[in-house]
Amino acid sequence: MKPITLSDLARRYGYFLDFLDRSGLLDRRGAAAGNVTPENVAGYLTKLQKRVSSVTVYGSIYKLRRASQLLDPRRDFRWLTEIEKDLAMVMRPRSKADRFVLTEVLVEHGLTLMAEADHSTNCSDLARARQFRNGLMVATLALHPIRLKNFASLEIGRNFVNIEGQWWIILGASETKENRPDERRLDDMLAPSLEKYLSKYRDVLAQKSESNALWLSSADGQPMTYSAVADAIKKTTLTAIGVGVSSHMFRTAAASSAAVHAGQSPYLASALLHHRDPRVTEEHYNRASSLSAAEALRTVLQGYTKAER
């Protein structure tokens, strides 16, 4: 497993142990995964269902089961698998409809934010640098929708490199979820903005930091964390567009925009998202069919209205 997966499983298992500890149920001398009993899980499940969404409840139990099996592969956790299946049947994912925008909207607003920051005269240099950085993040992720863990960890000279005057995102197989390399040349549309960020605004953000990270915090000049990048992107899109678009929704936007504007290239969306199986793209990301249907209906209604007039 990749370190980020192991860390996530450890954190989720830790939440379970913390619940038991605060409830006076934790057996500190028990065997590995010995605290994972039907009684303890039932109490944990009751607490989760009162506090978090059905999707988070399912994810918590799913990851508790995976962690438990890793800790003690000889124990029988089929009872926990059954609970997990029941939760999967009743979970209700939050609708993406209120957070869905197309890629061109994200790119346009990213470019607009950078232009506004570049011409602003009523805010500090640090504030301008922060806005320019955020605009560049939005536009870059929209055009190159890699996974957030890779986007947040871009480092100049390592996986973000200049080759013969062109900037490239170069991810090794060990860095991607699919365990295969992913190489993307930065779109020409972003080249001038990137050069301005690197030559001017990044230095303002860096302060005294000597980090090679592409995205630097405006607070201390240190590399932005995964959470900080996610938060900045969501807050920036909320301010600029009126919709807080999560980094994951950038991938939905890319797949749907590819289908809407390049329907003749059926595998474009899969390539953009680095998926081996196009069905994964269709199932989880593509909202183009509903958009196309809505557009067709609008055209029909417009024609009918004109005929009535």
Rank of each mutant, 00 (worst) to 15 (best):
V243M: 11
N150Q: 10
F19C: 14
R180Y: 05
R74L: 13
V300M: 09
E295G: 01
L297Q: 11
S256W: 00
K177W: 04
N212V: 02
E282R: 11
D98I: 03
H284D: 00
A97V: 00
V243Q: 10
A258P: 00
S193D: 13
N40W: 00
E116Q: 15
S257I: 10
T281Y: 01
R309Q: 13
D125G: 08
R158G: 00
T236L: 03
L6D: 06
A288P: 03
W168P: 00
R298I: 12
Q264N: 14
S209P: 02
E175R: 10
Q49L: 03
T46N: 11
V55Y: 00
L214S: 03
A206Y: 03
E195D: 14
A31F: 06
P192M: 12
A219Q: 11
V138G: 08
L143N: 04
H144Q: 13
L25V: 09
R251M: 09
T5M: 06
F16G: 05
N150D: 09
E183R: 14
I4A: 10
A129Y: 09
K2T: 03
K196E: 13
R147D: 05
I83V: 15
L238H: 09
S256P: 09
M224Q: 13
A115W: 15
L214H: 05
S246P: 12
V41Q: 05
R75H: 07
D27E: 10
